[in-house]
Amino acid sequence: MIILLLVLLLISVFFEGTVTTLPLVFICLVCLTIRMRSSAVFFIAFLAGIFLDTFALRPIGVTSIFLLTAVLLILLYQRKYEINSYPFVFIASFLGSFLYLLIFTYQNIFMMAGLSAVIAVLLFAIIRLISNQFSLFHFEN
């Protein structure tokens, strides 16, 4: 699952930097953080931010700082509360995407943040489904 998410993250970096303005990288990172729940996500967030800044022609390091902060907040939140749930994914994605689009001065922020949250929930649902099927297969074997 983590490898799948990493591949999706890589594809998101390319597409967010070239074709779309949806914060796909942020969405993938939220799902990855929920699955991995370890500090290794910081390294992935740092790298993803660097490459995203290169593609989008922003000052290199800006997106990394944003993504690192987002990952930190999620990891701090998961100390106290459960994060492996649809409401958390939706609200975290919505708020994070909203801030991201606001900071990097995109337009139609509400609509795009809403769409990002929906995509995040769908991705989370698919990952969960595949993970459950995989666990079931291993259990039966």
């Binding site: 500090s39 910081f42 390294f43 967030a45 740092f46 931010g49 660097i50 490459f51 290169t54 000052p59 290199i60 390091g61 800006v62 990394s64 700082i65 690192l68 902060t69 990952v71 930190l72 990891l75 701090l76 100390r79």
Partner: peptide, 30 residues
Amino acid sequence: VRAVFPIFSIFLLLSLLILFFFQNPLTNVL
């Protein structure tokens, strides 16, 4: 759990260093 802050600080510092001191050479290479 305790390792979160130190690792976050390291990468944050790295990002700030790149942002303020290594923009041009890194942009060129990347």
